[in-house]
């Protein structure tokens, strides 16, 4: 796994993509993290009172553990990692090989919309990071 070197333009471009696809659709918080649990970009209006460092570490670990579980039962990976809460839910998706996108949203947004938007976003973020 190579180190990530993030320039201002990569970060800005990614932030705008996340704002346009997810935050504008009503999502509370989006974290783009790497597999080691580092935060690449944090977006949304609820990031200030959220322990994003712990969240990123746990999400990366959880994602890694789930991938291993998939392999144990003969799957490559699970296509969908989703935890539903009473008010807020969390959706986790792989982006390219090294990145993970964590989306936290309330019951005002449907899972179907999240899945669609995350799939679009995955492509554009991969492109941004591929161009560096």
């Amino acid at each position: 796994m190579a180190d990530l070197v993030l320039t201002t333009s990569i970060l800005e471009e990614t932030r705008i993509q996340i704002e346009n696809t997810l935050i504008k659709a009503g999502v509370n918080t989006v974290l783009l993290i790497d597999e080691a649990g580092n935060i690449v970009v944090a977006c949304g209006h609820k990031t200030d009172n959220l322990d994003t460092i712990s969240l990123a570490a746990l999400a990366a670990a959880n994602f890694g553990a789930t991938s291993q579980i998939a392999k144990l039962i003969g799957e490559d990976d699970f296509a969908l990692l989703f935890h539903k809460g009473e008010k807020d839910s969390i959706h986790v998706a792989r982006i390219g090989t090294d990145l993970i996108l964590v989306t936290i949203f309330g019951d005002n947004v449907s899972l179907g919309l999240i899945r669609l938007r995350v799939a679009q976003l995955a492509k554009s973020i991969e492109k941004t990071f591929g161009q560096k």
Partner: peptide
């Protein structure tokens, strides 16, 4: 994998 944020001038390492 270290993360180097040139925008905020931060280096993140995992030990």
């Amino acid at each position: 994998m270290a993360l180097i944020n040139l925008s905020k001038r931060e280096i993140h390492c995992k030990i």
